[in-house]
Amino acid sequence: MDLTPERNDDEAVGHLSFDPKGVLDAGDGAVLTRLARLVESADPVPDDLVERSLFAITLAGLEAEMMEAVYLDTPLAGVRGAAAARADDTAPTEAKTITFTHDSLTVMISLSPAPGGKVRIDGWAAPAAGLSVELHRPGADVVTVASDEDGRFAFEAVDRGRASLVVRRTDGGAGAVSTPVIEL
């Protein structure tokens, strides 16, 4: 970040300044630099958000519409959610359910521990239809499973880490949809 005080001839920047003569003074720059650190400290960017975004970009070429995750919570969830998200880094052992939606399709997945430190993914899609579900992970081959007629599917032992599911209807109806990149 460049907030070093300097004479700036850019007239537009002049309007910003504390000094009516039109120059951001050294104090302005120092205050903003300090503020940036406080902002980061108050609400830190989640550790893996950059990596997840980078992986999501590589999946963008799949032309799948991104589904939206539904986070169920209680009125205090803002606080708990953040705390839980942080706690997840150290103790990701509990079963966790995430629901994704796109238009009329809903996909619910449940993550639970599998032997060898891996994760089991049980999924269920509604309305029930024949689906092919692809598991995408960085640097790994795509794994594809088919749902049963009730829309159930499972990946029995998946390495932990970033992943995204791409769901396609096997009858060719409707386009593919993908979940956001999540951390297993």
Partner: peptide, 28 residues
């Protein structure tokens, strides 16, 4: 630029987990 997007999204009152998805889908 992810930090700037993160704080932009959070400033709108988006809850933590959902904000991560919003940032991600913005890049997509």
């Amino acid at each position: 630029a992810t930090p700037l997007l993160w704080h932009t999204v959070r400033a709108q009152g988006v809850e933590h987990d959902a904000a991560e998805d919003v940032v991600q889908s913005t890049w997509v």
